[in-house]
Design a protein around this nucleic acid. Structure first.
Length: 387
DNA sequence: AAACCGTGGAT
DNA sequence: TATCCAAGGTT
């Protein structure tokens, strides 16, 4: 148990002797003492288990800050699997930050549709314009964090990965790893500052400071592949020895999270109005707030009780023979939504053009900036969009 | 500081 | 079905 053939011993304060190391580990297995996790062990593991991802350069190859930035923004609170197809599309259509800066915001919102957290798309566009006007990416944490959509985490991630700044970005992976390494059982989010301080001790070793990009990405891969939320792979973890949570026998208990409040239910009605060529009447949501700047079907407000008939009538884009074609349920971050979808037909949209809205021809429906909740509504009708 | 801000996959 | 939660940021 105390000898791991795969992990070359090295790292923290290596004395020129080898025999005492097993004794150190022996003592530490008896007492709950803190062992500094070896950056070298992690980097050695990473060299063998490094994940191949579209935004990652090959070892030794130059790193494109644009690729790192774009991927980091997309990956905020979003899984790799969800990001990959979006990332590929963006990079193909906007090969450089300048291409993105010159694009209309609405094109960016359409490309982002379905990925969620739409303020990211608006900030991405604003950020691209700032970088274009600066001439290049800032290369410091402070310079990066001053840009829209880039917070403490993302600034450190870009700085370390793209510009070799020796900082440790603390995302959900690193929070989990650190909470387990040090068996910190105070609940998130209160314990964040402590986790941040502990994380900063992980890269003090010279091997880590000499390879900030690899060290950061090694932490991500460790969190994604070994130190997972459920059933962590402690058996093959390069940091099993120093991990206090592993010593407790139930590492999956870490990190502890505060109890979250229940989600309220909200209700609304939307109107699916088509003309004789299957074009759909739509409108743009306000630029800020929920689904800001995205396209939606006209409808009532979303409140905590189903709307009264008079409220529904007042919200209809036109007086017509509205037929209920179904209901959809959609879960947002802080509330659940039930939408009743009413459908009607009209000859032409001319009579509506005094309203705030626009006609979406059938063939352009999939290119519109409809968020997922609206795509669900559009799918209900017999002429629903697909994809 | 606490609330707001999406979505889909895994369990 | 219910819950969790994923390379968080902004207000």
């Amino acid at each position: 148990m105390f000898f791991h053939p795969g992990s070359g011993r090295s790292g923290s304060g290596r004395v020129a002797t080898t025999a005492p190391l097993s004794l150190v580990r022996w003592r530490n297995s008896l007492h709950i003492a803190s062992v500094t996790p070896s950056a070298s062990d992690l980097l050695a593991w990473y060299a063998r288990h490094r994940r191949v991802l579209p935004w990652r350069s090959l070892p030794g190859a130059p790193t494109d800050p644009y690729a790192v930035w774009l991927s980091e923004i997309m990956l905020q609170q979003t899984t790799v699997a969800a990001v990959v197809p979006y990332y590929e599309r963006f990079l193909k259509i906007y090969p450089t930050v300048r291409h993105l800066a010159e694009a209309p915001l609405d094109d960016v919102l359409s490309l982002w549709a379905g990925l969620g957290y739409y303020s990211r798309a608006r900030n991405l566009h604003a950020c691209a314009r700032q970088i274009a006007s600066l001439g290049s990416f800032p290369e410091t944490v402070a310079g990066l964090q001053a840009l829209p959509g880039i917070g403490a985490y993302t600034a450190r991630a870009i700085a370390s990965i793209a510009f070799s700044v020796p900082v440790v970005p603390v995302d959900g992976n690193v929070e989990r790893i650190v909470a387990r390494l040090f068996a910190l059982d105070a609940p998130l989010p209160g314990v964040r500052r402590t986790l941040d301080a502990r994380a900063a001790t992980l890269n003090t070793e010279s091997t880590a400071r000499n390879a900030p990009s690899e060290f950061t990405q090694a932490l991500f891969d460790l969190g994604a592949g070994i130190c997972t939320p459920r059933r962590p792979g402690c058996l093959v973890c390069p940091w099993q020895d120093p991990c206090l949570a592993h010593k407790t026998g139930t590492p999956e208990r870490f990190p502890v999270r505060a109890v979250k409040k229940p989600k309220p239910e909200r209700y609304g009605t939307v109107f699916l109005l088509r003309d004789d060529r299957n074009a759909v009447w739509a409108r743009r949501r306000p630029e800020s707030g929920l689904l800001g700047g995205m396209t939606e079907l006209p409808g009532t407000a979303w409140l905590d009780a189903p709307p009264e008939a008079s409220t529904v009538d007042a919200a209809a884009p036109i007086e017509a023979d509205w037929q209920e074609i179904g209901r959809i349920r959609h879960v947002f971050t802080h509330f659940s939504l039930q939408l009743t979808v009413l459908e009607a037909r009209i000859g032409r949209f001319e009579s509506l053009h005094n309203q705030a809205g626009f006609a979406c021809p059938e063939e352009t429906l999939t290119r519109q900036a409809f968020p997922s909740v609206m795509r669900k509504c559009l799918m209900l009708g017999p002429n629903g969009i697909s994809g």
